[in-house]
Amino acid sequence: MIINGVSIDDTFAEAFGMRGTRVIITAQNLKWAYNAAQAMTGFATSVIACGVEAGIERELAPEETPDGRPGVSILMFAMGSAVLMKQLETRMGQCVLTCPTAAAFSGLEGGDRINLGKNLRFFGDGFQTSKVFGGKRYWRVPVMDGEFMTEETTGMVRAVGGGNFLILAESQPQALAACEAAIEAMKKIPNVIMPFPGGVVRSGSKVGSKYKSLIASTNDAFCPTLKGITKTELSPEIESVMEIVIDGLTADDINKAMKVGIAAACELGAANGIKRISAGNYGGKLGPFLFKLREIMSGDYA
């Protein structure tokens, strides 16, 4: 399969079941909603060392938020419910409770109910109060800027993490430009985040290492500088490879995001040095979700 001169590999991305949640952060204005949200989703690129993978899903207009203020929605994913609950609570406490004017609300109606502000209320040292509106409990915690308001719980659902594709280009700037175009398009898709910096990861990994203490190491088959000394996956003209990782609430959401992302990268085409699209997998034996690139690009997902 070739799209605008870009070869689409006959391969697939291999993804795993995760637990996901959505939190709505509002504040006096978007600037402060972003300050809280960026802190909350900071250091949340990979579950390998961060505990969760998190990102900002989209901006919310005042009429879309529970309290009528501008806000953003955050998606957060972890390999298990215990980790997700712990990380959510920790990040709420350090990043949203602390952020001036910020408030937090549930972003998922269904699913299992997990603590959002339920335990943060104890920061109020006995001065906290709760209110129930429309069957939902909210906590008001007195803080120095006024009151911190948070919904008691949010929803947790079974989700999918680790959807990905690789962009192989003739130069580093060209690979990055294609990634930027892909991320811009993918940001418009609901229910997904691309957790790495700017949505892009340059240090794709393989399982295992020559060092016994490491569980993952550099994906040497896709490292352009090792073309001559390793069992490379790269043809001579490829000088840079970058990966986009996608976590989504459902496999279908990831399908849609991959389709528009790959399409955006391919739009730049071979004329801009984009040569191939590939994907990372473990042979299809580990992850229950397989996202086959050619099927996605020939299907009707976006």
Binding site: P66, D67, G68, R69, T101, A103, K131, F133, G134, Y138, R140, G146, E147, M149
Partner: peptide, 13 residues
């Protein structure tokens, strides 16, 4: 005197 954010939520309900 205060501007309390929870009131917006209450009046919405």
């Amino acid at each position: 005197s205060h501007t309390l954010p929870f009131l917006s939520l209450m009046f919405k309900s």
